[in-house]
Amino acid sequence: MSSTASTGWVIALTPPEWRRWLLTDTPQSRWQARAGRAYLGWAAFARNPLAMLGLLIVLVLIGMAIFAPLITSYSPVVSGDTVADRFLPPGGDHWLGTDGHSWDIWSRIVYGSRTSLLIIFMVAITAAPVGIIIGTTAGYLGGWIDTALMRLTDTFLALPKLVLALAFAAALGAGMENLILAIAITSWPPYARIARAETLTVRNTDYIAAAQMSGASSLRILIGHIMPMCLPSLIVRVTLDMAGIILTAAGLGFLGLGVPLPQPEWGSMVADGRSDILNQWWVCTYPGIAIFIVSLGFNLMGDGLRDVLDPREQ
């Protein structure tokens, strides 16, 4: 066999039409260029089986939340017969059993995924933007703005997550909003730090100098040039943090400071069953397994994303 391509590259297979369109060296539009780039990222992600497993877990979680009424036959909050349906072991109609309130555990786990996703989503869309804005602004502008913003960050970083949430719950009452607020307030400082560190490496590059020379305002440089460079490491960090957020929410639920009953939440479900763990093991085991699987899923997905988005880690 002799070499084929003069560059020395040998492509093993002739790609199908759509793939050729995505991977072309000469995209015809902004949209095609972006799609091609996204496809390359996806291809790299898809090569990692563990990352795909993580993605699958997250997708199943989202599917559970969306289609909850379709995959459960009992209401998560309306209890069955308080005597006959109490502490039913797994099997039969209640295939994960029932708890002390005669609630169907499978239903509560399925509906509980909505609670978990809502908390993750709310924290991600509040803490991440705050972190990136504060971090990039501090890093790019420097001087006293940097000092002020980073001391603020340090202050918030010093707040203990659980204690703050406890204080919130004590002052404002237990509830989902306060839980989200408490987690969000303690989650953004690490994002600000990451964004600032990233900004400091980008700030003195020639492409930023070129943008300054073309007359771009600081705001334009921050949003259009610096933030896109900070996003990948931030996305990775947020994804990895999601497991932590679920665990914090579950921990608070376990302490009785999370989402109040009867709304289903995995942490409070574990707490609920803890006194009966020897006799009715299924009550706290199944929500515990759910927490474990979903945390693992986000971690696996985050590691996969890091390999794709943050090549320095490779």
């Binding site: 020639d206 492409y207 896109p228 460079m229």
Partner: peptide, 13 residues
């Protein structure tokens, strides 16, 4: 600029 690898924003077309 001197370095053609550092003077173009890597995420801009």
């Amino acid at each position: 600029f001197q370095d053609p690898y550092g003077s173009l924003h890597p995420k801009h077309t």
